[in-house]
């Protein structure tokens, strides 16, 4: 029964990781870059919600509403100022610049908010602590269900956007061939900037849910980036639904590890990632070029 509970909790944890991963996956799909500041942008979102919620005495879910448009704008500006120029100077430059941005964000947050650990859990009331008790040992937390539902909804609407809307077609066209897309009137830089804006906003959403689910501090970003990356690779770069699956596999690995001993939690996740990377499937994941 203990194990079933671990797997159920892992599925819900996986929803959170999928939420983190979808922005990373989107940027990789459209621009072929991995944004090393993704986790730190999520932490900015978490701090934003925290500030609004504590200053205006709002529920974090309502505090998210003004934060998300700000993060969209931040993502747009990030692309216009740093990423657009980086993309022009070769495939390695975006890695170096986003890593630099990550260091700047972490230390700026440290300077502004001190290294204290915060949580939004206490501000959300009963939803973050209550659960449905199925049996004496198996319970389904409200918050887990909510996060998983948000992840499915977000991935579903991203998939829908990519598949059926004009902007989605522009993103897919640009991902396949930026020059050809530009020839038919789809400027890559504008598509990239909008994709970055969406990715940063989803990161902020994930950061807010992380803050409700557990705790965060200025240096939480890199860990979340790593989990998001693992989810993307386990799920197979390419499909957004694969990202959800990857997040769930990672979540289950971590909760099963934690059942054995709490200090094995993150380690088990890393080991599952490395095993999948070393498997024949990993070769496929590593070498193929992704589609959005």
């Amino acid at each position: 029964m203990n194990w079933i509970n671990a797997i159920v909790q892992g599925v819900f944890l996986g929803g959170l990781y999928a939420l983190f991963a979808c922005g990373l996956s989107l940027m990789f799909g459209v621009m072929r870059i991995i944004n090393l500041a993704h986790g730190d942008l999520a932490v900015i979102g978490a701090f934003g919600v925290w500030v609004v919620a504590t200053q205006a005495h709002l529920s974090p879910f309502i505090a998210l509403l003004p934060v998300l448009p700000v993060m969209l704008l931040l993502g747009y500006l990030l692309h216009r100022t740093v990423l657009a120029r980086s993309l022009r100077s070769g495939p390695l430059t975006p890695l170096l610049t986003t890593f630099g941005v990550s260091i700047v964000i972490q230390n700026a947050l440290l300077q502004i908010f001190s290294p204290d650990v915060h949580s939004l859990g206490s501000l959300t009331g009963s939803i973050s602590t209550s659960s449905w008790r199925v049996t004496s040992e198996l319970s389904v937390p409200y918050l887990g269900v909510l996060i998983l539902a948000v992840a499915v909804l977000l991935l579903g609407s991203l998939q829908f956007t990519l598949q059926y809307t004009g902007f989605g077609r522009e993103m897919r066209a640009t991902a396949q061939d930026p020059e050809a897309a530009a020839l038919v009137g789809v400027p890559a830089s504008s598509v990239y900037a909008r994709a970055t804006a969406i990715a940063v906003a989803t990161a902020a959403l994930a950061g807010a849910f992380l803050a409700i689910h557990s705790t965060f501090d200025p240096s939480s970003g890199p860990t979340q980036l790593i989990f998001a990356f693992e989810a993307v690779v386990i799920g197979g770069l390419g499909s957004l639904w694969g990202t959800l699956l990857g997040g769930i596999v990672l979540g289950i690995a971590q909760t099963i590890g934690a059942t054995v001993d709490p200090q094995y939690s993150i380690l088990t996740g890393h080991l599952v990632f490395l095993v999948i990377l070393a498997s024949p499937r990993g070769r496929f994941v590593a070498t193929r070029s992704a589609k959005a």
Binding site: I226, L274, A286
Partner: peptide, 18 residues
């Protein structure tokens, strides 16, 4: 070394954390 570009970057990071 199976990974390239950004995937190599984060892959090495995961290895270091492990």
């Amino acid at each position: 070394l199976r990974l390239r570009g950004g995937r190599f970057a984060v892959g090495t990071w995961v290895v270091a954390e492990t």
